[in-house]
Write a protein that binds this DNA or RNA. Sequence first.
DNA 1: TATGAATGAGGATTCATTCAT
DNA 2: TATGAATGAATCCTCATTCAT
Lengths: 209, 209, 209, 209
Amino acid sequence: MNTGEPGSFGQLLRDMIASGQISDPASPKGRLLAAAAKLFREKGYSGTTVRDLAADVGILSGSIFHHFKNKDEILFGVMKEVVSAMNASLVARLALESESRGRVKALIEHELTFIHGGPGNAMSVLVYEWRALSEARQEQILEQREAYERLWQGTLEEAHTAGLIRIEPDVLRQLLHGAIAWSANWYKPGGDLSMDDLVERTLTLAVQE
Amino acid sequence: MNTGEPGSFGQLLRDMIASGQISDPASPKGRLLAAAAKLFREKGYSGTTVRDLAADVGILSGSIFHHFKNKDEILFGVMKEVVSAMNASLVARLALESESRGRVKALIEHELTFIHGGPGNAMSVLVYEWRALSEARQEQILEQREAYERLWQGTLEEAHTAGLIRIEPDVLRQLLHGAIAWSANWYKPGGDLSMDDLVERTLTLAVQE
Amino acid sequence: MNTGEPGSFGQLLRDMIASGQISDPASPKGRLLAAAAKLFREKGYSGTTVRDLAADVGILSGSIFHHFKNKDEILFGVMKEVVSAMNASLVARLALESESRGRVKALIEHELTFIHGGPGNAMSVLVYEWRALSEARQEQILEQREAYERLWQGTLEEAHTAGLIRIEPDVLRQLLHGAIAWSANWYKPGGDLSMDDLVERTLTLAVQE
Amino acid sequence: MNTGEPGSFGQLLRDMIASGQISDPASPKGRLLAAAAKLFREKGYSGTTVRDLAADVGILSGSIFHHFKNKDEILFGVMKEVVSAMNASLVARLALESESRGRVKALIEHELTFIHGGPGNAMSVLVYEWRALSEARQEQILEQREAYERLWQGTLEEAHTAGLIRIEPDVLRQLLHGAIAWSANWYKPGGDLSMDDLVERTLTLAVQE
DNA sequence: TATGAATGAGGATTCATTCAT
DNA sequence: TATGAATGAATCCTCATTCAT
């Protein structure tokens, strides 16, 4: 991913770090969140202990609570940042596409790239550990998550109107979401199937030729 | 689900109970497994305590260990029985279809019916709590699970040869598996979208008309 | 051990069984006590579960409580029977010896024979699991145990008066008791050192030649 | 016990604490080990709960696992430290004696002093709770324990060669070990029999006048 | 007398969290 | 900010004991 030119994903991240929306991955808090995303994904939220987390980052368990009030807040942090980033990044990505098929492809490519890229752990956590988050905090995430879903919804509706897709946008979104999220559990980059291939195959499901 | 005529799913279950492959849902062990499937799905394996489980069934926590040596064995029981049932039931289902499109539809319909029917909790657990199962037991499940996957694989390969599906059978299987499994998290029977509709929509993803 | 002639140890046991002082080793209760003696010695009283015991005898744990009110009563049974047997058997043994050195030797030989013979497990339990017995029952055992100790004490006092032993009878008794009981942990019959040798060596400690 | 002059037992202990071979009795770990030795001796290892132990030291049961990974490791700690101390202390004690009878007396006096002194609880545990220690850890203790036994063995062999003792050194060692260890269960310092008397009596068993 | 499912108190151990240093 | 000992509630599991069959 190009990190040099303005408007790129790398630049976008830097802007978000600068504005405090997501934490600097070099800071203690950022390293903690990255480790949490990795561990929560591998072993689940309940299955990961605060000590596992501390050990992974190289600090002692007591020190974690200088950065987060409790374990739930760590999960919240992981989810909040990935939702923000996904949102911002999809907005930026869609801005580059005007034509319907390209926009649908952008949705799919964007979500797959996210899952198999740096924020992949966090996104898996967002999807598969949702029930572990306290309800109070679920609501806070939901707002941003819905903004992201509206981007999908709007784009798919255009495509539906254009006759590009055959099934109801909301149903299609869910089917694609499941298919894409699950790819975290089987797709290995670097094998026979390139990421572009995977995007293409997934797009094939969605649209008529 | 028809439970009357021989060869039906209900009959198949009764045969499997009689042969000891799956436990009688009225027996203590069967009730425990059903409750475990429900709770493990709702709160995760780690998030479910042995006391939760006992309370749900109406016994004391210590009594659980009369039926299962430890908690891991409960998870194993849930998974083993659902895999057996899925296997047997898909074999029976496919035997009724000879033509390619019908067989692909049978695969999808079968898996969706399973997820949203009685064994749905157990199947969600099978999919989403896989990592929580001890490795030794994962292998035991894997054998039966692979038999099931071979049924999918074979059927999709026929369809691919017949030109009915456009993308590689193994990739398609994974995409469909994700899409179908995820439906447990959003699809509610009894709403606008009937189960038949959902099957039809999912089939639309897979095959060219 | 000769079991034929009247007055022998075997006969003595049969008489005690007939009179109900000790249980028939072929009866369920007798088999339970023998197994308990073995297990309590090997793993300690606390370390032995009622299930271990049942398994060893080939019954189910619940059935034990038809024979004994609780676990403590099993320990009590083991101790009570061995104390009775020791008592009766030492009385019989001493009756055969009139001269002082022979009587001291009889004490030692008797205790060593007991420890390394059939009732050895029970006697080890009596010595090393004493604290595990409820205080109420300790008192009941103590009476018989004291009778046994009086036999030792009286015999050693004679020997002391006769100038055969040099140190105070009560101190000597304790030293010999420790030495003899501990032999259960190292002496293996059938090795280089015969039981007669061991008796002789122990006697050498006690008496001046 | 003299703790002032260099070369004394007190000094030896301080050196061992300083070098980390045994834990400071004022430290949490040291207090835990002392309490464990006391309780394991009084109630046995299986009969002592981790809660008993915590209560005795005045902490909560969970806190114990800050200092020891599990209960077995506590038993191991008790045994390891007492074996180290016994070893070092016997080496020092024997260095002061050159003549054979004095050396045998030193062996006996040393072991009795140990049993009835500060480390007595730990030594009783070492002897009577051996089977409760996991086999893996038994082996670790055994090495040091054998070094201690070699000191006995060597000294008794000299005495045997010198005609001072009449029975085989290895048999004598076992008989004396049993006699001495058992004294923990009956001998009370401060009664009619002084410790010096007890040493003298035990020595009388071992050697010809 | 034997069974075996169930009990419920108690076992060792884990773990998020606190707090003095 | 970081430490690490301590907390105490909760966890999985064990076990002596009961009881309907």
